[in-house]
Every structure is written in C-alpha cells, then in structure tokens.
Amino acid sequence: MPKISSLSSARRLPFVLALGLATAVTAPMTPGLISAAHAQSNAGDAAFVQSLAQRMIAVVNGPGSAAEKKAQIQPLLDQDVDVDAIARFCLGRFWRTATPEQQAQYTALFHQVLTNSIDDKLGEYRGVGITVGQATQQDGKTYVATVISRPNQPTANVQWVISHATGQPRIVDVVAEGVSLSLTQRSDYASFLAHNGNDVGRLIAALKRQVSRE
C-alpha cells in the first residue's frame, strides 16, 4: 500500500509539471481560439436545431395520414439523431459485457423502440411551435435551449443536446423540463437488468416483446 502511494506521488510530479507547462505555453493563445470555435459551433448547432425543428414541424402539422407522417419522419431520425450513440449510452456498463451479436440485436431493437415512441406522439403534437434560444457548451456537447408551445398546453423548456462525434452535428439527447430522456431510459434498463440477473439476453427478449406489442 505505501509502495503504491509513493509510486503514484513520484509519478504525479512530472505529470503536474507537464500539465503546468502545457497550460503555460498554450494559455496565451487558447482563450480566444476556444471561444471563437465555441461561438461558431454554438451558432451552427442552434441553426441545426432550428432547421431540424422546422422540418419536423412541417411533417407534424402537415397533411397526410399517420402512416405517411411516420414515413416522412424516419429519414430525419436516421440522418440527424445519433441513435447508435444513444443506444450505447442507455445500456451503460452492460454494453461492454454484451457480445457483438447482442450489441447488434440490441441496437436494432433500440432503433425500433425509439421510432415507435416518437411515432406514438406525432398526433399529440399537432399545432406545435418551437422557438430556438441560446446554445451553451458543456462536456464537449452543445445544449440548444428551445421553448415548445402547443395549443391549450403550458409551454415546455426543452434542451437539445448535440454531439459532433460522428463528424456532423447530431442529436444525442433531449432534456425536457430538466428530465433527460436518455438518462431515464438508461435507469429503466439498468433496473430491469439488476432484477434479471444482469442478463442482456433477457433485456433483448423484453425489448422484442415490447416492439411486437406495438
């Protein structure tokens, strides 16, 4: 035990030095650079949300049957929502313990679950309007604040979380009135797994049942 601690403190010194050096060298030039880059990506991400919201609203408020609307929404989800990343996040630590086949099966099911839950709500959002507000950076992601209004309903504050991990802006989470949809989903799965022997196979079976019920 003492051996480890002395080792780590001996190692820590060069690390701290290196860190100090790195910040001393880069500090004079970084603030301007970082804020300029942030401002650019913030504005870009806000515009991205604005454009996606407009396309979604056009479908929701537009003419057409529920099935037609479903078909119109699908490409938007595929293109602008990083469903794979959300699926990975929702499985939490069990993503690593799952076999590649389980990962593939689970991801495919997750796509269906998400699509179904969005399709279910399309009807409720008739007459929806959206105002895009400020974008802020947090943990390398952009949080774009919006206010969603529906006829005869109180307005809702909704944040869209944008990640550039895939090289282009994509939605990785939606935070409605402080409630993160992916975090809620993750705790649902975590609790299910905790009560089902941490068996990803059983989660997949349950998701299959859920999808077939729809």
Binding site: G178, V179, L183, T184, S187, D188
Partner: peptide, 24 residues
C-alpha cells in the same frame, strides 16, 4: 406501457425533475 421497469422510470423522472427545480 413503454417502460420495462415503471417503478425505476418513475424514480428517475422524479429525481431528475426535483433536481432541475432546485437547480433553476
């Protein structure tokens, strides 16, 4: 209808909502 474990989902929603109110 949609949660695999409604109890846990309600727990998560309640916590997040309460924390968001306190943060605001």
């Amino acid at each position: 209808k949609t949660a695999l474990d409604p109890y846990a989902t309600i727990r998560s929603l309640y916590r997040q909502h309460t924390n968001a109110e306190i943060e605001a």
